[in-house]
Amino acid sequence: MAPTERIAGFFGHGGGVAYYLIGAMLALTAASSLLFAHVWGLKLRRDVARLVLEDGGDVVEALRWSLAATGEATRQAQAGVAGPDQPYIVVSTGERRLWYKKGEEVLFTTEVATGSGKSLVKEGGGEAWLFETPRGRLTVLSKEENPVWSPPDWHYVEQARQRKVGLVRLERGQSIDAADGSVITVAGDQIVKRSAGGAETVLGATEGHEIVVDGKLVVPPLGTSQRRYLGVLGTHRLNLGNGYALHGTDNPASIGQAVSHGCVRLRNADIARLYAMVPVGTAVYIY
């Protein structure tokens, strides 16, 4: 007998039972599917819970809903942060102290001098320089031994006002005619004084002993030797950008006070130690 004839015969003689058996099989299949879906749902919930516990991104997502975190905080958290195992520098402007830390462990700490908080009105009035150490997060961008200080404009304004003298800017290619008949000008990277007789003298300038001509303090052009002071910043400097730095000093008595123009000043022995310990890229948190 052919298979098709067998099947036809089976339904012909016991059709009712056959339909009952097929219905039972379909019901079992449906129940199995429901059970599978339920188990899969449980597994999914378990995995989501695990992700919430183990993955920062999902933690943030969970926070958005479960703790009603603000959109801004969530955006900031998702942007990522510095590695938790990286050492970092902390500076307290209030206590004028610096810590070099890894996690909660203090690797090094010392006294510092920070910004005075004073201001200095610029030439012509109006705007002013504010000598504050900036708060927030900075980064060690570069390191230097025996740093040279090129005084910013405010240094000359401050010096001129302290000495109650005027201020004159000397630019390359220009000269200043002095009352004694000599001429002050730039020759190469030096500021020189040419006498009426043709003799040329290189003028010296150090911090607090700037060039003064006929009652006016001369602002040397950038790049000249007279605008490069060695030793003022001590033995080492860690640059933080925008003119700010951690550096040493030639005035150790100032450490512990709010006297700087915004930089964080350390004793030379301390900045030398920090220089050796701190890699470029280290985060610096100033509060």
Partner: peptide, 8 residues
């Protein structure tokens, strides 16, 4: 800040 402990 950013997980760095500035003061305990």
């Amino acid at each position: 800040q950013e997980g760095a402990q500035l003061r305990e």
